[in-house]
Design a binder for these strands. Structure first.
Lengths: 109, 109
DNA sequence: TCATTTATTCTACATTGTAGAAATATGAAG
DNA sequence: CTTCATATTTCTACAATGTAGAATAAATGA
């Protein structure tokens, strides 16, 4: 039952990675999503999603230098991999084609 | 754990409803999604998703006239309800805000 | 060493996604 | 009226994704 496109939250997390670029680590990703979308995000949800996408090869991670400025554990930075970018593209294109010609944000009913 | 936005497939199905308008019944919805997105869709997936969204008040359904032209069971037509339209709008807007300023379909890596 | 801070990891469960066989309802043919 | 072919929905079971929050870890400075 291997899927080749993204779930809703996976989609949002990948967009956050692109958006944050080198700054993409768990806590920051969560903050970015909360600020942009206005919805609250459990930190566990972010990591679970990232871990699963890493297992699929969609993202990779590396530990940052332990040079935090005011204490605290080292950051784990994530970046999108080619397969993740492709899945993102597929999902974006599928939605885009479904949306073609329909008014989605005005007088939908 | 009540969600106020859509899963990926729910999202696509709602877009299909808008797109098909009065023609929106299970088999046709499936066909529309397959044609637009290029992915194959199990008919059970369509109904399960529609049934769950109906339970949430996102869509409603009514049975069509049993006046099929070449035999076959009556169609069950679906339409999007106000709450579904709102959820769709929220999902679209969340994605849209996450996408703002990032190149999603070109040179993403 | 302890308190504080920042961040990740873990565990458990809810919701959504998926597949395909089974069932239902019709019209047409015999 | 019985059977066949067709169109469509319904059902069942399981896999994948989403979510929550407590627990744990690692670093700093007093």
């Amino acid at each position: 039952m291997k899927r080749d496109y993204l779930g809703e939250f996976e989609h949002i997390v990948l967009l956050a990675l692109l958006r944050l670029d080198k700054q993409a680590y768990g806590m920051r990703i969560r903050q970015e999503i909360e600020q942009r979308t206005g919805r609250s995000v459990a930190i566990g949800a972010v990591y679970a999603t990232l871990d699963r996408m890493e297992a699929k090869g969609y993202v990779s991670s590396r530990l940052g230098e332990p040079t935090a400025e005011r204490g605290g554990r080292a950051k784990r930075f994530f970046r999108i991999e080619a397969e993740g970018a492709e899945a993102l593209k597929r999902s974006e294109e599928a939605l885009s084609r479904m949306r073609l010609g329909v008014r989605v944000t005005r007088g939908m009913a």
